[in-house]
């Protein structure tokens, strides 16, 4: 299913005036496509993710999933769309401290009405965490926590995967592993994946890259359009 963001405008009150967070921002992500959104701090990356994830309502513009405008719905309906069609992977994983890795996934399963433990085990196995299902977040490494976060986001079988700075708390190698995992999962699950990142080192793993500046989105670049300096280092050769 395609995620389409059209002419988004988002304003935040800032004293006596409004701060423009998004200004005619647009983005289209097809099913099975991973789009990286990058740009300097304050350029509107997180705002774009918040609007795409229905966490805030834009002043104008639309968010469409599979052609349906989901941005203008009631708060309860937006909750339902987030629950059933959108998966979030947060910065630093944001796992719940009291829940084991398996429980993190089962929580999503109970929320969407499909508490299937076999599916949770399958996803944890997919992200390489077999044998660590019953560990709590503090018993996992940063990379493992982020992989639990990825598996959790997939538990509801979402059409759209929104990923917020997944490598910011990881070293280069683990960051690359997580980005590779996201790319593979995007292809396997045919999700429309948006990854907001500062990290230009792994942009070669994206199908397209969008740069943001002052709330505006650039024309998407395919990874072969990227400058050589932003390509992957030699030990991580580009995909064929």
């Amino acid at each position: 299913m395609t995620l389409r963001l059209e002419s988004l405008r988002l304003l935040y009150p800032d004293g006596d005036r409004d701060l423009v967070a998004l200004d005619d921002a647009a983005l289209t992500v097809e099913a099975g496509e991973l789009v990286a959104v990058t740009g300097p701090s304050g350029s509107g990356k997180s705002s774009l993710l918040a609007v795409a994830g229905l966490l805030v309502t834009p002043a104008s513009g639309t968010v469409r999933i599979a052609g349906q405008d989901v941005s203008a719905r009631s708060p309860a309906a937006r909750d339902r769309v987030r629950r059933e069609r959108i998966g979030f992977v947060f910065q630093q994983s944001n796992l719940l401290a009291s829940l084991t890795a398996l429980d993190q996934l089962m929580l999503v399963g109970t929320m969407v009405g499909r508490p299937r433990e076999d599916r949770a085990h399958e996803l944890l196995d997919r992200v390489g965490l077999t044998g660590k299902e019953h560990r709590r977040p503090h018993q996992l490494s940063g990379g493992e926590r982020q992989r639990v976060g990825v598996a959790r986001a997939l538990m509801g079988d979402p059409a759209v995967l929104l990923v917020d700075e997944p490598t910011s708390a990881l070293d280069r190698e683990r960051g690359r592993q997580v980005m590779t995992l996201l790319r593979e999962i995007t292809k396997e699950s045919a999700t429309a994946t948006v990854v907001v990142t500062h990290d230009v080192e792994h942009l070669d793993l994206a199908d397209k890259t969008v740069t943001m500046r002052d709330g505006r989105t650039s024309k998407p670049l395919a990874d072969h359009d990227l400058l050589p300096a932003r390509k992957a280092p030699a030990d991580h050769p580009p995909r064929p």
Binding site: G53, L55, A76, D79, R80, V81, R82, R83, E84, I86, F88, F90, N94, L96, A97, L107, V108, M111, V112, R152, G156
Partner: peptide, 16 residues
């Protein structure tokens, strides 16, 4: 609060 924000972002309703 932070945990609840995550659960809300994942789509949990206020009633839940």
């Amino acid at each position: 609060g932070p945990d609840l924000a995550v659960v809300r972002a994942m789509g949990a309703s206020r009633g839940y």
